[in-house]
């Protein structure tokens, strides 16, 4: 319950933060909202030499409209994301996935960027970010670069953000008017998702015209269910959706744990994908 001793710096700009990470070396750790880092520190599962607290960097906070996209600062809290009128209007899926993260207290502190950079395979927002074709601005000693979702999530708890880099913001193309649903399957409300399905669809004449689907916790990284997306085009009823969802487990490689083995996770991926799409489509 008592972390190991560490140094602490509180930069007020991205450049300062990067400089602090470079100076801190391999054992430096970024603190965003801290809601994933603090438990690890309390249990002494991490022993950083220096904690770089990025919670007071104004330039990485806030939500803004940029043409066809919404740009969300990495340091924006979950609560701010889910409450944002812009997000609710243009990125309903992200609002819903974010509302299912942990609990109100954690959503008040935890940040979108922190959760994405932490890349917990059971986290709710990575699948939504994948489904929404997010791109990521990363700042490092060599300047800034932009990475797409497929390149951002690398492995379990591993992203394209290097040890001396800071995630600056997340850019998401607007999905205005799209139906959305995040189907989270867990044993208790507090528990992590056994499987989650982030689905958003554009309807046209009572049929699905376009679909984007991301899956939580069925692989080391969030999975885009592209074959389902393709099969859903034109679907206009529950049966068609269920048929399309049959391929939801394709390309997944779930782990087995005490709550669910791989086979069960793949089964859930199919069942829950159908349900999520039905709810997103209102069918």
């Amino acid at each position: 319950m008592i972390p190991v001793a560490f140094d602490y710096v509180r930069p007020t700009s991205v450049d300062e933060a990067v400089a602090a990470l470079v100076a801190g070396g391999e054992d430096a750790k970024v603190l965003a909202g801290g809601q994933s880092l603090m438990p690890v520190l309390r249990l002494r599962m991490a022993a950083p030499s220096v904690v770089v607290d990025c919670s007071r960097i104004d330039e990485i906070r806030g939500i803004r409209e940029e043409g066809d996209a919404i740009v969300i600062g990495a340091g924006t809290t979950h609560h701010a994301v889910m409450s944002s009128a812009l997000v609710q209007q243009h990125l309903s899926l992200l609002a819903k996935a974010t509302a299912s993260v942990a609990d109100p207290q954690i959503r008040h502190r935890g940040t979108l960027g922190g959760a994405l950079a932490h890349a917990d395979p059971a986290g709710d927002q990575p699948a939504a970010a994948a489904a929404l074709d997010a791109s990521f601005t990363i700042a490092g000693p060599g300047g800034r670069r932009t990475v797409g979702a497929s390149d951002f999530f690398v492995d379990y708890f591993t992203t394209a953000v290097g040890p001396d880099e800071v995630l600056v913001d997340v850019r998401l193309p607007k999905r205005t008017g799209w139906g959305a649903h995040y189907e989270k399957f867990n044993r208790t409300a507090q528990a992590w998702a056994i499987v989650g399905v982030a689905a958003t669809v554009r309807m046209d004449g009572g049929r699905i015209a376009e679909a984007r689907i991301g899956l939580t916790n069925v692989a080391p990284t969030p999975v885009r269910a592209r074959s389902v997306e393709a099969a859903l085009v034109g679907a206009g009823d529950a049966a068609a959706i269920a048929a399309a969802a049959q391929s939801a487990a394709d390309g997944t490689s779930p782990t087995s744990d005490q709550h669910a083995d791989a086979e069960y996770r793949q089964h859930l991926a199919r069942v829950l994908t159908a349900r999520a799409v039905q709810k997103a489509a209102g069918l």
Partner: peptide, 13 residues
């Protein structure tokens, strides 16, 4: 003004 878990915040924060 917002609820937080005070075990998950450093005093310095």
């Amino acid at each position: 003004g917002r609820s937080v878990k005070s075990c998950s915040v450093l005093a310095v924060q």
